[in-house]
Design a protein around this nucleic acid. Structure first.
Lengths: 226, 226
DNA sequence: TTAATTTGTAATATTTCTGTAACATTAAGA
DNA sequence: TCTTAATGTTACAGAAATATTACAAATTAA
């Protein structure tokens, strides 16, 4: 789990390419082909970053952008604008209207990936960090290892992703639906109670006797790291 | 695999000479004849070092250089500038703009090779090192020999490259895709399960009884040296 | 050319992980 | 205190990932 990215872009081929590659990188990705629909879905999806095409069939990128900035929930949502060649002068307008970065089409995926990482590093460092820590918990994404109080802990793949997810936003309470959406591969249907079992497994692995419980149950809301 | 080198240089004869010799040395090389195109391809290629001509048809070397340094992914990419005789005064400017070294045309390949090694040795020692070691494992790239606890080990070519790859980044977990991409010659299509078999062969060769396993399996992620 | 080595794959075995169902426990309001 | 809904716990079967083996084709050495 490296965060959620939403794409609003009308060229299906671009969407497909970018979405596929981002998913390979571990992002959860959703997309829309036009502005109005995109705005709605985006607010449901709650991404960590938006890739926004400058020229859309219905709204202009700027309109979308302004709409988003009006919504208090998305005031700080990082936005990267996708512009076509020759629209360069518009970039200035774009940056003024609250865009964090832009990239000119055609672009290579690596260029885009670099910018995404740069923007996320500023807005939400944990999403791209190689090491996540919280109190005496440490998770190394490169070496795929987890430590509690400097003692290594063995986790199965799902428990690893689950902990990774909690570590990107410690203390925050996540509902089962939210957990499902980001920790499980897309379009998989699992019983929501299944999460309880994985929480239990994770708890069992990361708990040390005489040390406090790290995962808090918030009845009727979900779980959080604490 | 001794790393990837990108060349931006408009004189085709120089490119050909350098590229050919570098490939003979085991580098993976790609090149471009002008600045704008070069910048794009470079970012796709993700080299370990860039050879950059000072005078290009479209952009100056300095422009290219600045552009690269702006991109967070390439902030530390080592650059060696190729300058023509008489441009010496420019060298100072070049070094200021973030170039790591320069060489004056005409140069012999040996001169260039020496500088490349010197620059890489600073930035990414494992790429040029003749000997890679990790714990009691030793791999000699020159003599193509491998030792475990001072006892020589016989490896097939693929197992040798595989171990070489792991040794350039011990502890790091690599996915099967990543392994395939760098250990196997480009555009070869092999089943991803094939890697398991080679891992097994490598394990069988480098393991000594009573010594710990050196290759770690990370379920659903890949393998690492450990 | 023949012999020896190396490679990739398919088939099979083994290990580890996952999701679910069933039952137990807990918390909170009536 | 009783009731009920939510969460905790456990065990297990099927699934998924990896390990192992054998073999034929390809490559290299002799």
């Amino acid at each position: 789990m490296k965060g959620k990215i939403f794409i609003i872009e009308d060229e299906a081929s671009i969407v497909q390419l970018v979405q596929h590659n981002l998913e390979k990188e571990g992002f959860v990705v959703s997309s829309s082909l036009n502005g109005n629909e995109g705005l709605k879905e985006l607010k449901k999806f709650e991404p960590n970053l938006l890739l926004l095409d400058w020229m859309l069939p219905d709204l202009s990128g700027i309109d979308v952008c302004k709409n988003i900035r009006r919504d208090s929930n998305f005031k700080t949502l990082p936005i990267i604008m996708l512009t076509a060649k020759g629209e360069e002068e518009d970039k200035i307008k774009g940056l003024e209207s609250g865009v964090d970065d832009y990239i000119t089409k055609p672009f290579s995926f690596n260029e885009l990936h670099a910018r995404i990482k740069a923007v996320l590093r500023r807005s939400d460092p944990n999403i791209v960090a190689n090491n996540l820590t919280f109190e005496d918990l440490k998770l190394d994404r490169i070496e795929k290892r987890v430590f509690r109080a400097d003692k290594e802990i063995q986790l199965g793949p799902t428990e690893f992703r689950l902990l990774e997810f909690f570590l990107t936003n410690p203390k925050r309470v996540y509902s089962r639906d939210q957990i499902l959406e980001t920790v499980w591969p897309n379009n998989v249907n699992v019983e929501s109670r299944t999460i309880d079992v994985h929480i239990r497994r994770l708890r069992q692995s990361i708990n040390i006797k005489d040390k406090k419980e790290l995962i808090r149950t918030v009845r009727s809301s979900g779980y959080s790291l604490v």
